[in-house]
Amino acid sequence: MLSLLDAIGNTGFAIFFREANTVWGYPTVLVAHAYGMILLVSVSVVIILRTLGYASGVPLAALRKYVPIMWVGLGVNALSGVILFSLDGRTFATMPAIWIKLAAIAVAVVCTRRLIAGLNKPAAQATEGKGLAYTALVAWVIGTTAGRVTAYDGMIQRQTAVAVVLLAVVVVAVVAFGSQRAPAGEAGRRG
């Protein structure tokens, strides 16, 4: 399997994207990967935030209009991701961070799909929606972090993951503290 990945990495296609001294090779694939991430994750995050009670004035059904944008983002990233993977298949295939990233994306996408399916359902099922929303949100943070650290070696990957968790805990604590102390008007606007 690894030798097959090596063979793919030695095709002219892979060599062009990896080594050609032009912004139209590897850099452009990375730009596409960033665009895909923005399309996919941000629309998903808005659906998550709406499920959690933020911007409740936004009609849920109307958010459906943005859903195709999300799937375009997933498509762009599947394609650009396969290209990026193929350039150095052996390194990536043996790197846990990549598999953690892909698993996190799978979890986030499945949760988001279930949230979308529930967009028109009555508010009685909101509790299940919140669980899905928090799961998807955590999965997106894990996916983004694991994806970014693939550029580093294992030790730095683990240290960065710990740093992200600690920072996230601080941010969540500040947000939770802030919304508890917010006056009724503020909380009402949020909820």
């Binding site: 960033a34 991430m37 923005i38 399309l39 994750v41 941000s42 629309v43 995050v45 808005v46 943005y66 997106w140 943070v141 983004t144 972090t145 970014r148 650290v149 550029a151 580093y152 030790m155 730095i156 990957q157 240290q159 960065t160 710990v162 740093a163 992200v164 920072l167």
Partner: peptide
């Protein structure tokens, strides 16, 4: 701290998703 620079990168990416994504939806 070898993790400090990649931590900044993760912050930058998460920030881009929130900033460009939500502003982009507003723009649309």
């Amino acid at each position: 701290y070898a993790w400090f620079w990649p931590l900044l990168e993760v912050m930058h990416f998460v920030g881009i998703v929130l900033l460009v994504g939500i502003v982009g939806m507003f723009d649309l």
